[in-house]
Design a protein around this nucleic acid. Structure first.
Lengths: 204, 204
DNA sequence: ATATGGTTTAACCAGGTGGTTAATCCAAAT
DNA sequence: ATTTGGATTAACCACCTGGTTAAACCATAT
């Protein structure tokens, strides 16, 4: 066989795709071998077991989600800019990897422990970010609230529409792929506005 | 054996619990039988196949999520009240069924078609709700935006923290169950404030 | 007592699963 | 040309899975 790069990488790319669609339990080694156009034994030759093959694919998938998060956590930009950048780049990223959030969250539910090592390795630390938020809230640049809640809100509004696609598509988009895509597109602007262009009303 | 009610119901209750934790592919008929304290054949006696047993459990689980959604869709209350009510009751409901959203969304990804019949059966229709939103936005009761986006936002902010619990708990709550619970509790107030107590800043 | 019929069980089965093994292929080094 | 060693394959295996079957159980009706 002649693949783009090495067989090893080729396998991992295919495996990741299958795992993303079927999850660990749903994926079959034979299926991965078929899609990769190789013998099943080759999977075990390069990655000793299904568990190990999955672990590699999973880690790679998870890590691909991190850079943007790291930027918002650790970067030096003002908070408004961070949020705008995150909503925009993450939405675009997820549009190209639509079932990645569901995949990661599914396996995170299956094995919550596995997260710790990955986070450690990625060197993510929210404390600096939380400090920045507090400062900018006091300066009035952003709607005041618990910084943790702000993070949850941003992640929720960005990621959830992708996880819930099979329910949003038929109910709100008339099963039209383009309408859904347009809806996501609008959110890139809508989400940052939510946190930066608003203020508390003084009347009720 | 002497269960609360009939054996049939007992099986379904246990099955639903196992399915919620493991998903369709991850659950084993033997496991369900064990947890129910009965012979595996009994499962097939009452529910012909794993597929059918799952379908029953799944439908029941899904339907348990609907009443609150129906209220916000079809009810007659003012929008502010609807949102407050939804965030409050749904958060409480999810707190008691923590892995239900992930379960439903997971199976929805596995088989998106299955949703249609359930929604039809539940008789949910967003058009009336969307009309109401438009009217109340014009009256200035609520931040103006695409009604579909408003719905996505409310659902995102309410449901996502439960799906993402295994990542929120360690990163934002120091793995403390109580801290997480408190975080969710605060969101019951925080979420409605987001949509009702804010307005667009005119400067900037 | 015993016949009845829904309920429950133990034993079994075919097919699928991840994984192993030994043989073969094949390009590079000698 | 031969050797070498990684890459690749076909055949195989033990185990697990959902599902079947025939027998046993047991409360109720006769």
């Amino acid at each position: 066989m002649n693949f783009n790069k090495t067989t090893e990488e080729h396998i991992l790319r295919i495996a990741r795709n299958v795992f993303e669609r079927k999850g660990f339990q749903g994926a079959r080694m034979q299926e991965i071998a078929n899609e990769a156009g190789i013998n099943k034994s080759l999977l075990h030759y390069y990655y000793r077991s299904k568990e190990k093959l999955f672990h590699n694919a999973y880690r790679k998938a998870f890590e691909s989600m991190i850079p943007d998060v790291r930027e918002i956590f650790m970067g030096q930009k003002p908070i408004k800019e961070k949020i705008r950048l995150f909503a925009d780049s993450y939405s675009r990223f997820l549009m190209q990897n639509p079932n990645l959030p569901h995949f990661v969250l599914h396996e995170l539910n299956r094995d919550p422990e596995s997260l710790l090592s990955i986070i450690k390795e990625a060197g993510i630390d929210p404390t600096q970010f939380i400090g920045q938020i507090k400062k900018e809230m006091e300066a009035g640049n952003i709607m005041p609230m618990d910084p943790r809640q702000l993070m949850i809100n941003i992640l929720s509004m960005t990621i959830f529409p992708f996880i819930a696609k099979p329910i949003i598509m038929p109910v709100l988009c008339g099963n039209d792929q383009e309408v859904y895509k347009q809806l996501i597109e609008e959110r890139k602007k809508l989400i940052p506005e939510f946190f930066t262009n608003v203020m508390i009303k003084d009347d009720n």
